[in-house]
Design a protein around this nucleic acid. Sequence first.
DNA 1: CCCAAACCCCGCCAGC
DNA 2: ATGCTGGCGGGGTTTG
Length: 319
Amino acid sequence: MRIVFLIFNGVQSLDLLGPWEALTIANQLRPGSYELEMAGAGRSGESVSVTTASGVRLAPAQPMADPRGPIDTLVVPGGGGVHALCLDPDARAWVAAAAGRSRRVVSVCSGAFMLAAAGLLDGRRVTTHWDLCRRLQDQYPQVEVDPAPIFIKDGDLYTSAGITAGIDLTLALIEEDLGSAVALAVARYLVLYVRRPGGQAQFSAALAGQRPDRRELSELQDWIHEHLDADLSVDALARRTSISPRHFARLFTDLVGVTPAAYVAAVRLERARILLETTENPIGVIAERCGFGTVETMRRTFARRLQVSPGDYREHFAA
DNA sequence: CCCAAACCCCGCCAGC
DNA sequence: ATGCTGGCGGGGTTTG
């Protein structure tokens, strides 16, 4: 997979190198998974260096990437220099064109400003550094800025909060691409949490964001989180909300963004992961507490979603 | 590992 | 008409 990083004067070095290092480690575990390139607007083929926002000079060992051709992932880091770059029409055009040839587009921190300037964020759900959310929202009213999550995936667009959140996002990309076991190994090697601690707050990083307007539904979501071992079938949930099953499922999907069963499955999986990571409880107890019913169901869910068994998951992550 | 049962989800249509 | 709601059928997936 060809990963292209945009570099420029005034880039935040960690925005760039955090994801770069994480992907490099993934590459060591699964050789050939990622081809990493740096590219600067209008400089392909040259060997150039940039000065990062903190004054460290960054000189890539390889020449600037030729930005033509298909790209798997375009990564746009942030940093103080990004705002000047946003004013450069060539840079905006370059980013827009490169994004058009990319399977997915990623921004770290204030890199979101560059994507917005290139017209890539209109109507999308995004996040950026907490200190810049207001500014981004004011500057681009058509963009839906959510300051809460560590990162947001909206279709093929991934945006992350400040600086080191880019690494969290990258771990999620690695998990998507290469499976949970590799992502865990990378996190472990970096001496990082694969997902930051913080209980349910973690969950909202991945899935919340969509907070339904309807009070019944957001209350129902809270109830689900507190009663994972209850009957959370569509029928049962519809009964709780006093809406017919058909209509409930439709409302839920529209407002939350995923179907009821998928939501419940995601919450159960998330809770099971946290319990595996942070407790010594036997797997059977965790399965029961999370509403899987039997260990077999939990095992199959893990295999399907994470490509790891619960036991392996715990083993890899037991820090 | 397999299979039947259960469940989920979506299109379609009808009632208000 | 239009938009919200709910029932039904069945193809696909998950469970036990």
